[in-house]
Amino acid sequence: MGAEGFEQATFSGTGLACRRGGRTVFADLAFNLENGGALVLRGANGSGKTTLLRLMAGLSVPTAGQLAWNGTDAFDDPDAHGARTRFVGHLDGLKPSMTAAENLAFAAQLWGDGTAARVGGALEAFGLGRLAELPVRVLSAGQRHRLALARLMVVPAPLWLLDEPGNALDDDSQRALARVIADHRARGGMIVVAAHGAAPMSDGMTLDVSSFAAAIPPHWSDAA
């Protein structure tokens, strides 16, 4: 992996609230991440972990509060915030008719300078080297998920957002993911992971999203 580290940055959220399916999911939520920081989101199903992750990525717009990168509001320039974020959600975001290598090469061109070297390294890191030329449609769900995770490494970005990455992974892949995350954090990157069972890193701060459900301000559509 390249030796370059990420420049000094803080990623924080204050007073964040977000609606999903006609309901406020959490409110007055705050967090703060420094270089190398890791945040693990806990909470029951439907407590808003995915909503919060998509909000951190700038895909969803909060109904209240501010998401800040180095103090400036991330939504002032959503494109810039998007460029510094890598998001791996429940959907893998891969084109079935393209091969594994082509999918990563597309990401390399789209996000960065498109050098093929990093594509090979990314595939190797997740044990997908020999599957590089296979079209994604023949890969299993686990292999596709590993490919989506491998895409994180194709072009470095300071902020990683992973939504329950461990679910479809076998033990080797779990270890590979932990190694990749540790290396990312060593170079000053930040990571937020929504997880149920064991988190891919041991020293991450924990944030229980469901604990912010209580602070939901009355919305005009509340029954009161």
Partner: peptide, 16 residues
């Protein structure tokens, strides 16, 4: 939209 590629495009830094 269905295979999740749209999210990756929106996070590519390219104006929508």
């Amino acid at each position: 939209f269905e295979d999740g590629t749209l999210d990756q495009l929106l996070l590519s830094g390219t104006p929508v």
